[in-house]
Amino acid sequence: MTLRTSISPPAVAPTQIQDAPSRHHMWQRISPYIYIGPAVIYLIIFMIIPVVQGIQLSFTKTPLVRPDGGTGVGLDNYTRLLSTPQFYNSLGATILYTAATVIFAVAIGAGAALLLNQAFKGRTIVRAIITLPWAVPTVATALIFSWIFNRSDGVLNEVVGVFGVGQQGWLVDPKYGMAAVVLTSVWKVMPLVMLVVLASLQSIPSELYEATRMDGAGALETFKAVTWPHIAPTVRVVTLLMTIWSIRRFEIIYLLTGGGPVDSTNTLVVNVYRQAFSNQELGRAAAIGALGLVLSLVVTVVYFMMERRNAAKEA
């Protein structure tokens, strides 16, 4: 065998070369659109078009019975809305409801996670009990709580009666309506906060704890130095999610109080529904909806931008 010197470079005339037949190339280009297309088209039809239509609707006076037979009224719906206290009351109720629900749900949920992150006998069953409310359907939740809160026969009045408090109309007294609704909501959504924070807590490497323990740090210092920095991003995300979900929460409020008593829990989403299906004014409902959309859009965009920034920081 002779030793070859460097292997000679190609020397074939390019004219001889033909493209091999293939159907592959064209598919390569269009196939992503075939996969994503159905979902995108679907969302355009059932989400984007309704949003656009809703905005159109908000410039009309449209009765519920004839949804496509509205008459244009220009900005009338909006000017009327913005000049009545009812709208600001509704906005205020939304903000109050959201703030209270988020604060209590996150505080209790995170606290529960910290408690459950420690080993003790029966932890599994305790965690299961605390988690369960999240899986209870909203309608069932409303049924239970409306019975618990019942003015004449509810168990809550029986309990407070022991402390000498008379019967209260938890769901019919404007003093308590919001509190009752918030309590029910916190009961239902707190487990999610707990589970997410718990998962984050369990991902803290135990070496970190050992290191701080060797430095002689107490429980509070450990929490500040190790635990909190680790779970803070999770808590932030879950707080934002809770905020977005609270702004849009309808069922618990509608089923428990229907927006009352005396409009004290008449949040924007409930307000939309009442305008549309009780007052049968689709146009005015759409106008409230559009304003509510702006509110959730602002929160969403803020959230999206924060996520982008965090992602950029991580990269």
Partner: peptide
């Protein structure tokens, strides 16, 4: 550039082809 198997340019072919 071109990838040529024998005298056929296979640039546009799938791995299987």
């Amino acid at each position: 550039g071109d990838i040529i198997f024998d005298n056929l340019r296979v640039n546009r072919q799938s791995p299987r082809e």
